[in-house]
């Protein structure tokens, strides 16, 4: 008997994530790559890599759903849903409601509230500005001439931090330059930047019940969770791979629609 499989592709503004699951919702393979400017090409590559990792050769009977900013660019997807629905579905695979999901993405942040039954109560996306998102940290890393992957360790090791007051990424950049001029330590500045991300999240909504943190920024900068813990009393949890929750959710929705294999 052949296993029933389903796939999910989350084409984000920054990275494209792909997941394949089996009948039981177990992840057989996943892949993440930069989206670049060719969303269709990125989704093709991500999907091929995922199939290869999962050891799946035939794609004939695999139902694939897409999500994310570029969800309509995935030519082989049979359906698409927003990242709001898919992140929620992905988180429900690991945790039960009620919960507040905090997703920190490349260019937008999301707060999604689910009730006891896992049904959505409300959601919010950040406003037009990308303050507090991955784009903010990328911009700041560039200004500080730091590789992105070093940020988490620097923030974690810091024994103090600078205070950055602005909403605006550009103005924050100016503030950072002022801090450098006045001799602030690099790790203190990075920790200040992390705190700025947390402040942007805190002002988006209230936090009720368990907080589930997802997104690429959390996957690569888990110290943000420690910082958020200093502000709220709620339990904070993360799924095993926070970055692929949207793709996983899309795959789980696809699984619901995937035809049952009769052989």
């Amino acid at each position: 008997m052949t296993l029933r499989l389903a796939g999910g592709i989350d084409v984000g503004s920054c990275t494209t994530k792909s997941v394949i699951v089996d009948d039981g919702g177990n992840i057989l393979g996943s892949h993440v790559l930069y989206s670049g400017t060719d969303f269709e090409g990125a989704s093709d590559i991500a999907w091929r890599e995922t199939l290869s990792l999962a050891g799946v050769s035939s794609t004939d009977s695999i139902c694939v759903f897409s999500t994310g900013y570029g969800r309509n660019s995935v030519s082989f997807a049979t359906n698409s849903l927003t990242e709001i629905s898919c992140h929620a579905r992905g988180c429900l695979h690991y945790f039960s409601g009620p919960m507040t999901i905090v997703d920190i993405g490349g260019q937008d942040n999301k707060i999604i509230k689910l009730d006891q039954k896992g049904l959505r109560v409300s959601f919010k996306m950040n406003r037009k500005c990308a303050a507090g998102t991955g784009a903010f940290l990328e911009e700041m890393a560039l200004r500080l001439r730091l590789p992105l992957e070093k940020l988490n360790d620097l923030a974690k090791q810091a024994d103090g931090e600078v205070t950055l007051g602005s909403y605006c990424t550009v103005f924050s950049g100016t503030e950072v330059l002022e801090k450098i001029k006045s001799g602030a330590a690099l790790d203190h500045i990075v920790r200040g930047l992390f705190h700025s991300v947390v402040k942007r999240i805190l002002e988006m909504d209230t936090f009720t019940d368990t907080v589930v943190m997802t997104g690429g920024v959390i996957e690569h900068n888990p110290f943000l969770i420690d910082l958020l813990k200093t502000h709220i009393q709620n339990d904070i949890v993360t799924p095993p791979h926070p970055q692929i929750m949207g793709a996983l959710g899309a795959a789980l929705y696809a699984l619901q629609e995937a035809p049952h294999n009769m052989d």
Binding site: T82, I84, K128
Partner: peptide, 22 residues
């Protein structure tokens, strides 16, 4: 200049998905 087409589209689509769920 104060309007993000894609963000608005996604918000509306997600809202309708929420209503569908209900």
């Amino acid at each position: 200049r104060c309007y993000s087409e894609e963000q608005t589209r996604t918000n509306i689509e997600a809202f309708v998905e929420q209503l569908d769920q209900k």
